[in-house]
Simulated assay, not measured.
Amino acid sequence: MITAAPDITDKVYIVTGTSRGVGVEIARTLHRRGARIGMLARTLADLEENAREFGDRALALPCDVADRAVAQAAVTRIAEHFGGIDGLVNNAGLSRIAPVERLSEEDLLLMFRVNVIGVVNMVQAVLPHLRARGGGNILNISSSSVRDPSEFPFLGGYAASKAALERLTQELRIEVSRDNIAVTLFSLGSTLTHFGTGWAPEITEEAFAEWDRRGGAAPATMDPSLPAEAVVRCLESPPGACANFIEFQPYAAMEKGRRMAD
């Protein structure tokens, strides 16, 4: 018997990293499906501007997911505002670029704080609310750089943080399966975003030179609306089944010199 995909109208989803890029596109896609959205990011001005288009169906809160107390408070406020939580999309992420030989402890710790500890903080804050609903969804966004180092040089530290996230996601899936909570790992390929924000200009130039030396080969970049649609379809999986792992990639050839992407 085929089970129809559930209607997510009025369901409540938290999406982190919704100031721009894939995060805000996920929020838009959820809104088009009739869901209500808790929008979290570090920059309040961008958040509020994005949330205006959703009216009272969105609540935008500034949140550093790497701060456990702040993450907990944001989740509590969203649950109180909307009357519960049905799912979480851990989209917030941060990258720094450097060869492993010159990777600073500061940058490495920063990436692990946001990309790993931040996800753990959000999951721990959300789980009691999902259990109160009788189940729900958690979707963690990773990067194809974990499996394909040829996409762009000097992302070893970033890829290592995402690899850690992937192993945590596998463990989480087993731990919460008895609670009717679906856990999906969504690995994102090259996407037009502000992924390179915060990169040191001189190391970035060095990385492009190394990219050229390696052949400059990379897949096309996607518009962020494409993975956003795929993420929401994961949340619409029929009860009792979900996608454990998705590698979402563009498939057309990319011109060299295009804007940096995930």
Rank of each mutant, 00 (worst) to 15 (best):
M1R: 10
M1S: 12
T3D: 03
T3F: 07
T3A: 11
A5Y: 04
A5L: 05
V12I: 15
I14S: 02
V15H: 11
G17N: 05
S19C: 04
G21S: 10
G21H: 03
G21P: 07
V22Q: 02
E25P: 04
I26L: 07
I26C: 11
A27F: 06
L30P: 08
R32T: 12
R33L: 05
A35V: 06
R36V: 08
I37F: 02
L44K: 13
D46V: 00
L47H: 03
N50V: 06
A51D: 02
R52G: 07
D56K: 10
R57H: 14
A58Q: 07
A58W: 01
L61E: 05
P62Y: 07
V65I: 15
A66R: 00
D67A: 12
V70R: 03
V70Y: 02
V70M: 11
A71K: 02
A74K: 06
A74F: 05
V75C: 11
T76V: 13
R77M: 12
I78A: 04
I78S: 03
G83T: 04
D86Q: 08
L88R: 03
V89C: 04
L94A: 07
L94E: 03
A98R: 00
E101D: 15
R102W: 02
D107P: 09
L109R: 12
F112Q: 08
V114S: 01
N115P: 01
I117K: 04
V119R: 11
V123W: 02
V123Q: 06
V126N: 06
L127M: 14
P128I: 12
G136R: 01
G136W: 00
G136F: 03
N137V: 01
N137K: 04
N137C: 10
N140A: 13
S142M: 14
S142N: 15
S143E: 05
S144L: 15
S145C: 13
V146I: 15
V146K: 12
D148G: 14
P149F: 04
P149Q: 03
P153Q: 00
A159I: 07
A163D: 08
A163Y: 03
L165S: 00
L165D: 00
E166H: 12
R167D: 07
Q170Y: 15
E171H: 14
L172I: 11
L172V: 08
I174D: 13
D179R: 08
N180D: 09
V183I: 03
T184W: 04
T184C: 11
F186G: 01
S187C: 11
L188H: 10
L192S: 09
T193H: 02
F195R: 00
E202Q: 02
E205M: 01
W211Y: 12
D212T: 10
R214V: 00
G216I: 02
A217Y: 07
T221W: 10
T221R: 15
D223F: 07
D223G: 13
P224K: 00
E229H: 09
E229R: 12
E229L: 10
A230D: 09
R233P: 06
L235P: 08
L235D: 09
E236G: 05
G240Q: 12
A243C: 14
A243Y: 11
A243K: 08
N244P: 12
N244T: 14
F245P: 02
Q249V: 08
Y251T: 15
A253K: 15
M254S: 15
M254W: 12
E255V: 14
K256M: 11
K256V: 10
R259T: 05
M260P: 13
D262M: 07
